Amino acid sequence: MAHSKNYILARVNPVDLEDLGRKLGVVDLKHGQVLAETRQRVPHVYFPHGGILSSVVELKDGWTIETGMIGKEGVFGAAQALDNKVSLSKVMVQVPGQASVVDAEHLKTVTLSSPELLALLLRYERFFLAQVQQTTACNALHTIEQRMCKWLVRMHDLAGDELPLTQEFLAQMMGVMRSSVSGVAKQLQKEGLISYRRGHVRIVDIELVKRRSCECYQAVRELYDDQFGEGASQQPGSGHSPRPSY
C-alpha cells in the first residue's frame, strides 16, 4: 500500500489504519508549498512518503531559520489535531514528494478511540521536540560547514543523492548569509564531496560529507531510534510486526 511508505503509518495496526483509510488520501506536495502558517490552525495531517517538510521560524526583520525536518519517518499536524492547537511555526515543502493526508478532525476521532495510535503519535512528537532542541544547540555552537554537512546528510537520508535546492534557500534555512553557504559549497565541490549547479545539489561522497558534519546528525538518528527501536531511522518495520513497545 502507498500509505506504508510512511514510517509512522507503516506502524499503525490494521484496525486503526482501516479507520483512518476511510478519509486517507494521497496528494502531491510541491516545492515551496506552505502547509501551515505560524499561529494558524492546521486542517489536515500529512504523512510524507518522500520529499521533505521544513518547520521554520520567521523573524520580523525578514530572517528565517529551519528548526526541524519532517520526511517519510514522520508526520505533521497530528499534535495540533489532537488538542485543536495552532502551528507554532511555518511549515513548507522543502523537497517535493507525495504524502498521505487525512482530515485533522477524523484523525482526532480515530486516535482518541485508540490508545495504541495515540501512543505512537506522541512518540513521534517527543522525537520532533528533541530534534528541535538539537537543532537549536547546533545552530548556536557549530560551524557553518559542520551545519551544512549535517543538513545535507539529513536530507540525503530523507530524499536521496539528488537535492533540488538553491544556495539562497539553503542559506535561508540555516539562517546565514548566502555568501557563507557559497564559500562552503565551493570548497566541498572542489574536494569532491558534492557537485553543484544552479538549483541542484548532488551528493557525490556521502561518507565524506558525514565525516565533515557535526555530532548532531548522529544524535538525531539516535533520538529517533530511542523512540522507535534500533535501526528505525533507516527503514520502516515490515508489515506490523514487530511493533514498537509503548
Rank of each mutant, 00 (worst) to 15 (best):
A2E: 10
H3E: 00
H3D: 00
S4A: 06
Y7E: 09
I8F: 13
R11W: 03
R11T: 01
N13H: 05
P14L: 05
L17P: 09
E18A: 01
G21Y: 08
L24S: 08
V26H: 13
V26A: 09
K30S: 13
G32H: 07
L35P: 02
E37L: 08
E37A: 02
Q40Y: 14
H44F: 03
F47E: 09
P48S: 04
P48T: 00
P48Q: 02
S54A: 06
K60H: 08
T64V: 09
T64Q: 04
G68E: 02
G71R: 00
V75M: 05
L82Y: 13
K85N: 15
V86Q: 08
K90H: 09
V91R: 03
V93K: 01
V93Q: 00
V95C: 00
Q98W: 04
A99T: 13
V101H: 05
D103T: 09
K108A: 12
V110P: 03
S113I: 03
P115S: 04
L117G: 06
L118E: 07
L120H: 10
L121H: 06
L122N: 14
Q131S: 07
Q131L: 01
Q134V: 05
T135L: 08
A137R: 06
C138V: 02
L141R: 04
L141V: 12
M148D: 00
L152K: 08
V153Y: 12
V153D: 13
V153G: 10
V153W: 05
H156D: 02
H156K: 04
L158R: 04
L158Q: 07
A159Y: 05
A159C: 10
D161Y: 01
D161P: 04
L165E: 06
T166A: 10
T166I: 04
E168K: 02
F169P: 05
M174C: 09
V176L: 11
V176T: 14
V176P: 07
M177I: 11
M177K: 08
R178P: 08
S179N: 11
V181F: 12
S182P: 05
G183K: 15
K186A: 13
Q187V: 15
Q187D: 08
Q189W: 12
R197M: 07
R198L: 11
V201G: 14
R202A: 10
D205N: 15
I206G: 11
I206K: 10
I206W: 09
E207M: 15
V209R: 13
V209H: 13
K210T: 12
R211M: 13
R211K: 15
R212M: 14
S213L: 08
E215I: 14
C216W: 15
Y217K: 02
Y217D: 07
A219T: 14
V220H: 14
L223I: 05
Y224L: 00
F228N: 06
F228H: 05
G229Q: 11
S233P: 06
Q235L: 08
P236N: 14
P236A: 00
G237F: 10
S238T: 14
G239D: 01
H240I: 02
H240W: 01
P242V: 01
